[in-house]
Amino acid sequence: MKQLVALRVNGELHEVYVPVHKTLLEVLREDLGLTGTKHGCELGECGTCTVLVDGEPILSCLTLPVEVQGRDIITVEGLATQGVPHPLQVAFAELNAAQCGYCTPGMLMSAKALLDRNPDPAPDEVREALAGNLCRCTGYVKIVDAVRLAARRQQGDLGAVVEEIERALNEGVVREPGS
């Protein structure tokens, strides 16, 4: 049985006609072409498919689209504002918090939910908030560092952020004390 579902994803309204049992993860990836959201287990165990619904991190592999109609869904593709990457994205890139990068979109969404409610989390608060997201590459160290670095920065304008990325690519990361 199919159903027409209206989803607001990254501020854009989409109407999709999908089987009722198709998960939000599948609809995002297959029907909306938003492949930035990944999957690692399909059973709600790994956190890789995390997206935000009204600011709360949820597992899209365990969510049916009908449950989230009319709510604000944010995926990794919606993290940047007008082409300006979110401070979390820049910090993850600079500090090598993304190795294979596969868990990164989900990790970023959980981290954004954390920073939105706690702008200056302690390392243990970061670990607690992200404990549902598994990463096999990094040993989590640089992810904690990156979330805290992002917390210390304000979102800049496009020019400033591009400059920051350029510097990180060509000159290197300047680590701040206590990072």
Binding site: L34, T35, P85, Q89, A93, N96, A98, V173
Partner: peptide, 24 residues
């Protein structure tokens, strides 16, 4: 010797890096 950002880091943090299952 410098602690540079990886050349493909931004593609990974923006969800633009293509993994095999992303191909349609």
């Amino acid at each position: 010797g410098r602690p540079l950002m990886k050349v493909d880091a931004m593609s990974k943090v923006t969800g633009q890096a293509i993994y095999a299952d992303d191909i349609h």
